[in-house]
Amino acid sequence: MARNTGDNAMIRLEGVSKWFGNFRALCDVDLTVDQGERVVICGPSGSGKSTLIRCINRLEEHESGRIVVDGIVMDDDTKHIADIRAEVGMVFQQFNLFPHLSVLENCTLGPMKARGIGRAEAQKLAMEYLEKVHIPEQAGKFPSQLSGGQQQRVAIARSLCMTPKVMLFDEPTSALDPEMIKEVLDVMIELAETGMTMICVTHEMGFAKTVADKMIFMDAGQIVEAATPADFFSNPKSERTKLFLSQILSH
């Protein structure tokens, strides 16, 4: 394995920058996430939150700086990228379930085709995780037959089937109807209780207060403030953070 840094942190970003054309999406971002730590990232749209977590599993390529995940340095080596992706699960805003596969097949595809696990074992594993997200009875259905909340829970189960060490959530509840947000957040809270290392981009401040070990506020591609939830909500240091919090908490 490529354990080549002797680093204890699960995720370490040092001076990470990323441009889209002339637009600088990330400016010298430093971030350390320890094993088992739960980080919630918030900030206005276009602030680089999604780009930041998408760099962690190479859905976006960072242009400068250093990213290390579980001791593996992210570079152009496809082996390193594959090793990192094997340890990092991701849940998307738009679920991105495979529409041509049943719920069960969505969950078994990764383990079978990427890990080489046999069908029976993969299905057993998938049912275990579908039970953890409380929808084992939907295993035979297709994604289009499920509600948004159910689909997102399947997406979480699909990621967990790869037994990742880190889970990334990219606005997992933003595309959901209000009455379905709770069922997804409940599953995420249960997951946090198992000690999973998590990074969530979300504006669900109630959820953040419940699970976060660290709050991060981003603006214009930079981390403006990083603090414990208690400090972050009661005593934000930066003016921009205060303004942002007053806008989203006023309702």
């Binding site: 859905l59 594959a82 992706r85 495979f98 595809l109 085709k113 990621s159 790869m162």
Partner: peptide
């Protein structure tokens, strides 16, 4: 949709496997 490829990559599939099991069937 682009998200399909990304979802395939995040569950650990290789470039070929994403094509074979996710993109082409759709």
């Amino acid at each position: 949709p682009k998200g399909q490829r990304e979802a395939g990559q995040t569950v650990g599939l290789s470039h070929f496997a994403v094509m074979r099991y996710v993109i082409l069937p759709q």
